[in-house]
Design a protein around this nucleic acid. Structure first.
Lengths: 219, 219, 219, 219
DNA sequence: CATGAATGAGCTTTCATTCAT
DNA sequence: TATGAATGAAAGCTCATTCAT
């Protein structure tokens, strides 16, 4: 899995000023998130970022690389959230609550990042995509897994549950929730299940999900 | 939501022999599932189905309509599975087991249908897409919701849980599982969480998921 | 010019009931007039006329033939108007007035026919078009020419003017006026010259055009 | 009417060398004039002009814009002729003669431009078409109108004739004459009225038309 | 290094006409 | 004689990528 490693950006991009790098990333993120990978337009991105296509291709090998880099950047933002919640010294149930609350908050604030992530499937299955998905998913996998194990050590979580599998199920719930708050299609579906006033129901959704999750795992 | 209704196929398609209809649906399903909506090629579909493009456009208004029809067809297959499990006279836990087992089975057998479904987001948000998504999701929504309510009536499921919300969380888990067994990207992710030998772990996944779910809801 | 003669309709069409013939002609006229020759759709015409395309092609060799037939029919209507005005026993000036008034009236009532006529140029230059245009134009040519000659015999019109040439100039004026009342583009132009309230100025246009024309020719 | 203004060409076209611009304009003019708007082929134009379709679409938004640009260019040529004749210090009758002579000359030399103009109607009625037609027609409208008014001030033209209406009638005659010398259909018609030896009759046509026109207007 | 003009394959959709029934 | 399903060539337009300046 680790075998193939390639940088997503060329040195030329790394040498850019932070301001310019940020501008390019933001522009690309916006375009990919709003148009989807296929309909995103490289020329438009270059224009909106105030650089030439020629330069863009000096910084990135291809459209795909640019896309994957925006994902990579976005993931850091999301990972940081996990890092700030999971290691805390709190009971499992409270961490669950914090995580779900964070999802509700970031899904709305960082809508584009979630939308980006859900475009990953459109891109085909190059080695690069595999590498990236590994980077992304293995972080969640190990963090949630650790969270479960810790809960089991502390006696909060049943010992007959497999930590990896529970991490997987938790992540499934969290990803679904993220999509439900940010993608148009999943928002639709959210409303079909719960009614149109989703945005007034944050507390309800939070409460019920915490109950569901803690009850599922608790000793 | 019900206001706008349009047939996905023209009468000319309905008049076709069952064999021809099936061939077209299968060909289109395969193309859309393997290439994604944007990269699917109408000319290729026509050629592989042994008809002319002209005819294809006599049967369907547009590429989008053809796509949505394949989804519609596919959904029926999946819905049938639900219909055969949920009304049964069994305890809730057993129905959960049946449902997850069905997911494991159909996700592999009907891989294309799941892939198709995950393409729905690429298509934009026409009224037709909304109508279709409503058809699809509201069936699951109501069936799972009923399942929960029944469990509550029978005292199997805690009364403090909201049936609609629990239906939503269940469906989230099930959809995630479906994707994990059929989409390349989610399969990757599945393996990152649980190791490469996914296909040998059906029983394990089934068992753990049932535990998780029943424990989450049980009284 | 007379060399090539071919019927525009097949015997099969002639054998149809008058009602059916009329329906086909009206439907085709409407489609060609509103869409233009190129964008007119044979299948649509058949459908709206309540017959099959197959039948339509039994009645007419081609789209072009159908079009030319509608023109042919339309011309008769317009020619009738000339026939009713020119032979009358009135002074030249009054006939001019009658002609222009007729143009104002029929251009609005039979808008489609004029629009049809202006599509003749789009059709290319087959022998059939030549034959048809000859039929149409030679009638006006000879009638206006006779009108002038008669005016000259009666001493109403200057003898130094060539009747054929004057007929040509008159017809130019009349055709331009017809277009100005029926084609969208020429109506625009009409308004640019005379202001937006064209429809309130019939009397004015009539009066000024009669003055212009009679003064141009009078002895 | 002036409200909506859009450039017909993109900056990229303006930046081209004059030779290249001219080549593109000429190629497009030829294609549109010979094939008509609908049958003109963008790929053919690009090929004949020695550029790629991609480039053509970098220079022009659409087929329609390319077409309208060729008209716009053509109009300038025609307008220049008016500008050189109408302001001269000559009697009205002589200006008429000059105008008609100019029509006979340019209609043959610039046949394509006239054919182009007669295609304007095929294009539908976008705002762009309206804008362009306004540009074209209002120039003739005001110039002819001024010509009449000047004639009235100088006592050459009857005071009871409305200048705008007379300008309209004059322009009708002139446009008809232009078409008669350049469009195949109208040339046919010309010959039906005057006989096949049109090209030997320039002097005759000129003389008779001047007589007609001056007599129509003179005091 | 930066630029941005140029490329051209590729794709959806239309519609006059045919012909088996 | 009537039908209408089937055909398939044809055309406008897009956009990732290159490369001369």
């Amino acid at each position: 899995m680790e075998a193939y490693k390639r940088k997503l950006t060329k040195k030329t991009f790394d040498n850019l000023s932070d301001a310019k790098k940020l501008l390019i990333i933001q522009t690309a993120t916006h375009e990919f998130a709003s148009q989807g990978f296929d309909h995103a337009n490289i020329n438009t991105i270059a224009e909106k970022a105030g650089i030439s296509v020629g330069s863009l291709y000096k910084y990135f090998e291809s459209k795909q690389d640019l896309f994957l880099m925006t994902i990579h950047q976005g993931t850091e933002v999301l990972t940081n959230t996990l890092q700030s919640i999971i290691p805390a010294d709190k009971p499992f149930a409270e961490k669950c609550r914090d995580l779900i609350q964070a999802i509700q908050k970031t899904s709305r604030e960082q809508q584009q990042l979630i939308q980006l992530y859900s475009e990953l499937t459109s891109v085909g299955n190059s080695d690069l995509v595999k590498q990236l998905s590994y980077e992304i998913e293995s972080i969640s996998a190990s963090m949630y897994s650790e969270l479960i194990k810790e809960g089991q050590r502390k006696g909060e979580i049943r010992a007959d549950l497999d930590p990896a599998m529970m991490a997987f199920l938790m992540d499934n719930l969290f990803i679904s929730l993220q999509f439900s708050y940010s993608s148009e299609y999943y928002l639709q579906r959210f409303k079909i299940f719960l009614g149109d006033d989703i945005d007034d129901k944050d507390a309800f959704v939070l409460d019920q999900t915490v109950r569901f999750l803690t009850s599922a795992l608790k000793n």
